[in-house]
Amino acid sequence: MSGDGGRAIDFEDALGYLLPWEFSLTWSAACLMAILLYLRGLRQRRLRGDATGVRRSVAYLLGVAATYVVTQTHYDYLAQYMFFTHRAQHLVLHHAAPFLIALAAPLPVLADGLPARIRHFPGKGLAVDLLSPLYRLLQHPLIAPVLFVGLIYFWLIPEIHFDAMLSADLYQVMNWSMALDGLLFWWLILDRRTPQQGGLGYGKRIAILLAVIPPQILLGAYIAFSREVIFDVYEVCGRAWPLDPLDDQRLGGLITWVPATMMSAIGVLIILSFLFRDARNEDLARANHPVQ
C-alpha cells in the first residue's frame, strides 16, 4: 500500500469518528437548532447595537457542542459499550453541558434569534399557560433536587440499566431525560434573576447544591467499591475493548462520585459571586442615591 493510500484511510477513519454511531434526528436537530437560533440571535443583537458577552456565548456554544459530541459522534459507541464512558456521557449530559448552557443565560439571545412569525404565534399564551404549572412543579426547590438525584439512581437500577442499554428506544429516552433534567436543574440554580426579580433565593440554591452531594457520593462510592459486577449488560453486549469489568465499574463509580459532586462546589462558588455582585450593586445604588 502506498503512503498516500494509508493517509487516505486514516483520514476516513478520523472522519468516521466524527459521524454519528446511531444517527438520531432528535439530537441532531435539537443541537443544530440551538446553535443556529443562537447565532441568528447574536447577529440580530449586533445589528441593534446590543452587546452580548463573549464568555457567555462561548459557554453556551461549548455546552451545545459537548452535548452533540457525546450523542452524535463515535463517542456514543463507547458510551454504549463501556460503563465508565457511559458515566462520562451522563456527566456531560446531566452536569457539565447544561451547566454551561444555563450559566450563559441564553434565553434573550435565543428569543432574538426566533423568526418574528414564531415569536408572536397565536397559541403562545395558551402554551405558556398550560406548561407553566408543570414547570413550576418541576422547579420547586424540594422537587428539583429529588428529581436530579432520583434520575441518576433510577437509570442505574441494574435491571432498568440493562433494558436501557439493550433497547435503542429506551436508550434515547434515558439520555434525553438526563439532558432535560440537567437543563431544568442548572437553570434553576444559575438563574441570573436576583431573588427580588423572581429568582430562587441564594440560600436555597446553595442548600440544593449541597443536598445533592451526599446521595451522589453514596452511589458513586457504592459502585466504585463494589466487589461484584453490578451492571452485567456490558458483559452481555461486549465491551469496546477488553477491560477488566471491575476496573470499568470502579472508574464509572469514581466519575459518578468525584466530578459530579465537584460541579456542586463550582455551583456554590458561582452563587456566592452572584451574591457579592448583588451586594455591590446595592451599595452602588445607595451611593448614587443617598438616603435623605
Binding site: 453486549c237 461486549g238 465491551r239 475493548w241 477488553p242
Partner: peptide, 27 residues
C-alpha cells in the same frame, strides 16, 4: 451482525508471544 443485535467486540494489546484478549458479548 454484531451491530444488528446491539453487541460489540474489541481486541486487546498483543503480548510478547502475539497472544491477545478479545472482548465479546457473553449472551
Amino acid at each position: 451482525l454484531t451491530r444488528r443485535y446491539r453487541v460489540t467486540y474489541g481486541y486487546g494489546e498483543k503480548d510478547d508471544n502475539g497472544n491477545y484478549d478479545v472482548s465479546h458479548s457473553s449472551a
